[in-house]
């Protein structure tokens, strides 16, 4: 079987996803027996002209959000060159933390940077809003997380570059994958397009904290309480998004005493993660008195920035739709 060709790239984001891919190669198992890396600027120093010509990639691992015109151009070019596109990490999959700029009017800052002298180089223009990769090009598969856990990243790489050749190696991560993905991996075929390499249920399903009765009597900011290490954080009054977030991390943050902030995006059955959380919390207010409910509600701060911490561009339904600079004359909006 001929070796596959890989491309790896990060647009706007930190380099942790790329370092994780490198770590998978050295710490789990090298993927070079099955694939050659044809384009990886961060590690091998590939340049844009390396994409010239008619060679193509079997898989592109694309990390980072799309913030500048250069990021957009990179996404379009790598999509054109790649048979499969894998969004790696929360920034690429949902817009990630840079997506919070959409709340603060990233558009206001666009076009500010202009070279003063003709002999000075220009900078790539920032777009009017931060976008997820799927807002720009078709994405075939997603590995969510900030950063993605190595077992899920490894499962995706194994499934997409050497289907059917190493099913035993994938078994340790397959238990957390949805049935269609693990079955297709086990049978040596590509998982269904659009699949997410993570669980289907909510984080609560794999969080080790004990859940009893969810009743909100007061809202607490995380600094105000030293939470009981074994009890559900939400039940202790801390806004924790495990209810609305896709599982796959194994409750990593809650195990460390920190509330879930949704870096895996919404769970399969959830329409909008913020709306789901509002619904979940408001239905558990332990009061029927309007004044008490109002007081409790006022305890929540920065709901938009918290509930859509990693998902504002892609999963906040109210803000979905093309950015102003993507709307062309004659378009029906």
């Amino acid at each position: 079987m001929p070796k596959k060709k890989l491309a790896v790239y990060t647009a706007n984001g930190c380099r942790v996803c790329e370092n994780s891919i490198l770590d998978v190669h050295f710490q789990v198992s090298p993927f070079t027996p099955w694939a050659d890396v044809g384009f990886w600027p961060y590690l091998t120093g590939s340049q844009w002209q390396d994409l010239d010509g008619d060679h193509r990639f079997d898989l592109c691992l694309f990390a980072g959000a799309v913030r500048t015109v250069d990021d957009r151009s990179a996404a379009l070019r790598l999509r054109e060159k790649s048979r499969l596109m894998l969004a790696v990490g929360a920034c690429s999959a949902f817009g990630g933390m840079p997506g919070l700029l959409n709340l603060n009017g990233a558009a206001d800052k666009a076009d500010l940077v202009v070279p003063e002298k003709s002999a000075e180089p220009a900078l790539p223009r920032t777009e009017s809003r931060v976008s997820a990769l799927s807002d720009i090009v078709a994405v075939d598969y997603v590995v969510p997380g900030c950063p993605p856990p190595k077992n899920l990243l490894w499962a995706a790489i194994q499934a997409l570059i050497c289907p059917g050749e190493c099913t035993s190696r994938i078994s340790y991560s397959a238990s957390r994958l949805p049935d269609p993905i693990s079955q297709s991996v086990a049978s040596g075929i590509l998982p269904p397009r659009g699949s997410t390499f993570a669980g289907e249920k909510a984080v609560c399903a794999s969080c080790s904290r004990v859940k009893e009765e969810k009743k909100f009597t007061s809202v607490l900011r995380p600094y105000e309480i030293d939470p009981d290490p074994g009890r559900c954080l939400l039940e202790q009054g801390i806004l924790c998004q495990g209810v609305a977030t896709r599982e796959g991390c194994g409750g990593l943050c809650t195990a460390a005493g920190a509330p879930c902030r949704g870096c895996f995006g919404k769970a399969e059955a959830v329409f909008d993660p913020g709306a789901k959380m509002i619904s979940a919390i408001s239905s558990t207010f332990d009061s029927t008195e309007a004044a008490e409910i109002k007081t409790m509600s006022q305890g929540f701060v920065d709901l938009a920035g918290t509930l859509y911490r990693y998902t504002m561009p892609a999963q906040c339904v109210l803000l979905a739709g093309p950015a102003e600079d993507e709307i062309h004359a004659g378009d029906v909006v």
Binding site: C14, R67, L100, L101, K109, Y223, V301, G305, T306
Partner: peptide, 27 residues
Amino acid sequence: QITAPKDLGTICQGRPVEELPRILSIL
């Protein structure tokens, strides 16, 4: 040239201050 802005100061504005250790770890 650094060809993309970070704007972490802007991202932090309006956030509860206790969330900043988690937000700023992306730097």
